[in-house]
Amino acid sequence: MATTIGVVVFPGTNCEHDAVAAVEQLGASARLVFHAEDKLGDLDGLILPGGFAHGDYLRPGAIARFSPIMDAVSAFAAQGGPVVGICNGFQVLCEAHLLPGALQKNRGLTFLCQPSRLKVTSTNSALTNAATLGEELTIPINHFSGSYTCDVDTLRELQNEDRIVLRYVENPNGSLDDIAAISNEQGNVVGLMPHPERAVSALLGSADGVVLMESLLRAASVSRV
């Protein structure tokens, strides 16, 4: 049976179909999971896609974190299931304390929508296990609150435990230590601001997101066994 990825949809999510298309293009299947459900069913991996869950009211991810589905997402993550939060999904994972730190408004207070060059700085995660350490990828960013921040102790932990998985080559938003993506301690939960699902074909300007999506599928097929 094909690996199946669940794509969680909150009111205001808008990248779910891009995520489904990217997963299907790579030969796996995908299923949308609505925020009001309280069970995930039989899934091998999860994507929390981008958008503006609950209008980003209060703070991005602040309301989404209390959605009924989030208990099931936390349980899935605790069992080692791969979970990738993209953009708004990253913000939701931070608010839900599945990842440390927070995403603040961009330095410069501008909405950024542009290609970004990234460096793979750890391959020890559900997002980068198929990538090569030091590899450069060009993947678009599309956010207003993407400046990663955390306290000094957390930053040291992330650095020492090899949990900063992608860094910006040229920091676009003021993120601490050029962080574009981090993982939890086990490496199965990853959040990133760039959109790999929008970079899966040369026709889209870049196919560099493929290696990241493939990493997720690989982690999902392993967790299935």
Binding site: L58, R59, A62, F66, C94, E95, P100, G101, A102, Q104, T149, C150, D151
Partner: peptide, 8 residues
């Protein structure tokens, strides 16, 4: 619980 994010 909701209004502030104690992280920041």
């Amino acid at each position: 619980r909701l209004l502030a994010n104690p992280v920041i």
